[in-house]
């Protein structure tokens, strides 16, 4: 069936897109990923500084541990290193990820 085919293609595109760019907001709970980029311009400058101070920065690897209560699933509890940090989804949407399995092995640590 055509519609099934279209659905299949759409799903493959979706997976492909997901593997290249995924926002922290969309990371499934419990899966580890590396932060590829953070759009600092959408964060108030103090907030950006605090995020960085807590280790939420390009190159860091993070896991979503918990999502907030029922509606909205906001905020998010991230584990980073041996620490857990709570952030809001709006901020998570400014953070782009590279799923760990999609990271090429020869990529130098945290290219700058």
């Amino acid at each position: 069936m055509v519609s099934q085919e279209i659905a299949g293609v759409a799903q493959r595109i979706l997976i492909a897109v997901r593997n290249t760019i995924m926002l922290l907001d969309q990371l499934p709970t419990g899966q580890r990923a590396e932060i590829a980029a953070i759009d600092w311009s959408v964060l108030p400058s103090d907030e950006g500084k605090r995020l960085r101070a807590l280790g939420v920065d390009e190159g860091a690897s993070v896991t979503i541990r918990h999502r907030g209560i029922f509606f909205g699933r906001d905020p998010i509890a991230l584990s980073i290193g041996r620490m857990t940090v709570a952030i809001r989804r709006v901020h998570a949407r400014a953070i782009t990820l590279r799923p760990l399995e999609a990271v090429p092995a020869d990529l130098p640590e945290a290219a700058e």
């Binding site: 964060l43 907030e47 905020p75 940090v85």
Partner: peptide, 10 residues
């Protein structure tokens, strides 16, 4: 003021 965030170490 702009909506502030919630950034907290647990």
């Amino acid at each position: 003021g702009g909506a502030s965030g919630f950034l907290m170490e647990m």
